[in-house]
């Protein structure tokens, strides 16, 4: 399993992760090594074995449809990097 620099850049784009050329080269080497060692999984026969998403058999957990109080706006906005009055200020999505 070899991940090229180009593939690393594609994954970085999917993950919205900026990276330098040095990082891309390092990741290409490290991820290739890691994935190569994980190829042993292909040795395991998993025919007709169902996947496990998590280990307790809970399904469709829903809460009652009850109104509860939310945190005050001022507290939620206290950590905002950029705000304007009672809003989060964001960059334009559509240019």
């Amino acid at each position: 399993m070899k991940l090229s620099g180009e593939e690393v850049l594609h994954i970085a784009l999917l993950a919205r992760l900026g990276s330098t050329e040095t990082e891309v080269n390092r990741l290409s080497e490290q991820l290739s090594n890691i994935l190569e060692s994980f190829e042993i999984l292909q040795q395991v026969d998993t025919t007709s074995i169902p996947p496990t998403a998590h280990s307790v058999a809970l399904q469709n957990v829903v809460r009652n449809d009850e109104a509860t109080t939310s945190l005050p706006q001022s507290q939620i906005l206290a950590n905002a990097p950029r705000r304007e009055e009672n809003w989060f200020r964001v960059r334009a999505v559509l240019e």
């Binding site: 991940l3 993950a15 496990t52």
Partner: peptide, 26 residues
């Protein structure tokens, strides 16, 4: 993040993520 994004990405999901989930069952 890179490793996980790769394992979940189109074309690799079955070979890595789903395979890992099946071995998890075992």
């Amino acid at each position: 993040i890179m490793l996980g994004t790769y394992a979940l990405s189109a074309g690799y999901y079955d070979a890595w993520y789903l395979k890992a989930q099946k071995v998890r069952t075992l």
